[in-house]
Amino acid sequence: MNKGRSSYSVIIPVFNGEKYLDEAISSVLAQTLKPEEIIIVDDGSTDSTAEVVKKYHGSVLYSYQSNKGAAAARNTGLRMAKCDFISFIDADDIWVKDKNEKQMKLFNQHPGTEIVLGFLMPVSSKPQKHDINFPAKKSLLLTHLGSALIHKTVFEKIGNFDEQLALVEDTDWFFRVRESGINVWIQNEMVQYYRIHEKNSTRDKNKTNFYILLAYKKSLDRKRKSGIQDTL
């Protein structure tokens, strides 16, 4: 069932996210443009993530699966999502309250746009709860899914997340966005607080670098398959 032209599904993939999940969900519920549905995909958490979610019973859809990685959790969320627009938020991040309202407006103002991507602001691991005026200074434009609102047709064009990639599945997906010429509208506003903490998945540089190289190799293989030869 299609829920309509301006409705959006929120997907929150989470693995052992008890510490910050509550704040992430609160920021979703506080959106000035309410989501049609909030899908939480628990990727095999062994902490009290499920207990945190219980607090929101009736407001969120909860799906538990054995641990398969962030890409698989995102894909589960995509399969469940019923709306034309998709917005991801990681379980440790926080949206500003009008993120999705403003991004939806940009979609309406700029026909042909397929992704709206805003800026994010890195914040420390211990901000004051429910206080989004953290001592942050500057925001950044990064290809981070949590800063985007995505038309669902993009996934039909370029596919879902690659479950072979235990990390950097988002980088790989944005490689495909670029390769496919998807129209990305850059929103010159900060839309998300990106939390830097001791468990950010990309802190293991050896592992991250391996998967970055793997994503590049996949990009190279796609080019070969399509017959594109664009070496410098």
Binding site: L142, T143, T171, R178, I196, R203, K205, T208
Partner: peptide, 22 residues
């Protein structure tokens, strides 16, 4: 040599986060 994913890499959070953080 390939340059086409250069900008995507530079705009990736994976690229920026270091073991000690930001």
């Amino acid at each position: 040599k390939y340059a086409d994913n250069q900008n995507v890499l530079f705009f990736s959070a994976s690229y920026f986060i270091e073991e000690k953080g930001w």
